[in-house]
């Protein structure tokens, strides 16, 4: 078992853990955190897979992808938090309303 494999395994674990939390928790902040945990899992897998077995140098392209992914994740989280605050302000609680809002 190589180090890279261990990292990739941990990344998959984070992804599944986040998915579980996203589905199970009602509070929107927990859902947003769950998405972030899932994102970290994907980034960890990307970083881990950058080193191929049998090669001595690390491939920089997945690292560049992670940087881009982090920028995307930050903007998405900012939008999600802003939406959550508006929702909490209007409805008094940060949970998703019933399907059609009526």
């Amino acid at each position: 078992m190589t180090n890279a494999f261990l990292y990739a395994l941990a990344g998959s674990g984070l992804f599944v853990l986040g998915l579980h939390a996203l589905v199970m928790h009602a509070h929107v902040l927990r859902k947003i955190l769950a998405i972030n945990v899932m994102g970290s899992g994907v980034f960890l897998i990307l970083v881990a897979l950058a080193r191929r077995s049998g090669e001595t140098t690390t491939d920089p392209v997945p690292h560049a992808m992670v940087i881009t992914g982090i920028v995307v994740a930050v903007s998405a989280t900012a939008l999600a938090l802003a939406l959550m605050l508006k929702l909490a302000e209007k409805s008094g609680q940060a949970v998703l309303p019933d399907k059609h809002g009526d």
Binding site: V28, A80, L83, M84, K90, S91, L96, P97, G101, D102
Partner: peptide
């Protein structure tokens, strides 16, 4: 509006 915010939140997730 509250229904739009709820719909948007669900959509974003």
């Amino acid at each position: 509006r509250i229904d739009a915010l709820g719909g948007a939140m669900r959509y974003l997730l």
